[in-house]
Nucleic acid binder design. Structure first.
Lengths: 256, 256
DNA sequence: TATTGACCCTCACGCGGCGTCAGGGTGCAG
DNA sequence: CTGCACCCTGACGCCGCGTGAGGGTCAATA
């Protein structure tokens, strides 16, 4: 017959020796037998019971309650398993939901970050506002922001005047198409805006030098709420800033 | 400016007032301000911070460590989120894994249960062994077993002699085909046995009055290790009992 | 104004489930 | 015999609150 000492069982099950002492003390998990040396010796049956204890414990069931469950007559066994299964599934879903929440936050932060890298020097902000905006970014995002600003400044510095003017003209066309939809009274969620929205997204991607994903585009909408961007879009047409932000978000949401 | 009292914030966040007191005491979550009445008043910023605390707490991170993380400079924010995301995903997977483990246990128990309901009275066990077998079932599975035995006895009692004889003849044909494979020296895992195995499974399904799923069929193999069944299969051919059990298990495993 | 019910406060004991350590014994190899 | 790894019991203490005592504040109502 195979037996385990406390340390062996503890390692097999991923618990501490102290835990096994404690469970013996409270009667939750008794050893198979105790030797003359007062050592605890456990068998396969105790190992199996311990594994069942650990599943219940993962569901925050108090130890004494776990003991009551495991010591109940066998006819309850299937019902208990079904109940534990449902609770374990709920926990799995709870954590999966938190993963999705954090994924959205990460995407948003990454979208914001990518936007700030490139648009700052794309001519959207007047040069005299740049120092102020840089201070805002550093204050908001902290430590390595200055290094990234330096990097973006260098990349934009390498674009010639003709290329920059071409990009600005493209952006104006896109924004004008969107503003026209706004003036015609289309709701921001209207799919008739999709061509203009997607043209805008493509423009942003080319300004970034990499694809603007739907998540990043949704994050960009957040950043367009910054006062400097709002001011700029309000100058195109009063009310346009809010319309654009909502339209961008609606589009991003529809991409799943 | 919108403010919340302790109870309002506690309800919004799903924690207790005591928890908020505690977090204030240890400096983890201070109120926005405290009134002359000594009441705590929290703002949106505190609500957001509390939500972040709760995600970290779900990962069993000690409170003082949570404080250190949240109070770190902002440039760490994205890295921390990524790390938490990975840990939350691991937790989700851990619970999902436990769900699968319990599902397998449930399927096995249900398979055994369904088998015992019907085969007991299908003529496989000699009548004089029935009382003994019933005692074994009740001892093994406990409380409601007697009610279920009564139910099955009634159902079998309604099958006429001709129908019963037809089922027995079918079963003999199936078992003979399997025994022939055994005599020819086929390994129990051989796919050449599949037609006979599937015929057997179909027979069991018809005896049950409902489909015998691969899980249930795997569970049935466990139950065929009972001494009464072994004796019966050994009577067909010495060594056949072990062969059959192994073949059934191999087939069930191959169904995924 | 007084009363009442809901909410707020500080203070403090205690619980569940161990982690950690002290002091001492056992088993086994060199 | 010595040294190392493992075992024991006993016991203090920690973390994160739950619970309750005793008392104050706020707002509606009679």
């Amino acid at each position: 017959m195979k037996t385990y000492t406390v340390q062996q069982l503890a390692e097999l099950a991923g618990v501490s020796v102290r835990t096994l002492h404690h469970y013996d003390e409270i009667g939750l998990l008794k050893p198979a037998f105790t030797g003359e040396n007062r050592y605890r010796y456990y068998g396969e049956e105790e190992l199996l019971r311990l594994q069942q204890i650990l599943i219940h414990r993962a569901l925050d069931i108090p130890l004494m309650e776990i003991g009551a469950i495991l010591d109940a007559p066998d006819f309850d066994r299937l019902a208990v398993l079904r109940e534990q299964r449902d609770r374990l599934e709920s926990e799995a879903k709870r954590f999966a939901g938190m993963v999705r929440t954090i994924d959205r936050t990460i995407a948003r932060l990454e979208g914001e970050t990518a936007m700030q890298d490139n648009e700052l020097y794309s001519g959207l902000i007047a040069p005299e506002k740049q120092a102020e905006y840089e201070a805002w970014l550093v204050e908001r995002f902290g430590g390595d922001m200055e290094a990234r600003i330096a990097r973006s400044r260098k990349a934009m510095g390498e674009m010639n005047e003709e290329e920059r003017a071409g990009m600005m003209a493209d952006l104006q066309r896109v924004e004008e198409a969107l503003a026209e939809g706004f003036r015609r009274g289309l709701p921001p969620q209207a799919t008739a805006l999709d061509p203009a929205i997607e043209a805008h997204r493509r423009w942003v991607g080319s300004a970034w030098g990499r694809e603007c994903t739907p998540e990043a585009y949704g994050g960009l909408a957040d950043v367009y709420e910054h006062p400097d961007f709002r001011k700029r879009y309000e100058a195109i047409q009063p009310g346009f800033a809010e319309f654009l932000v909502t339209a961008m978000r609606a589009w991003a949401r529809r991409q799943g």
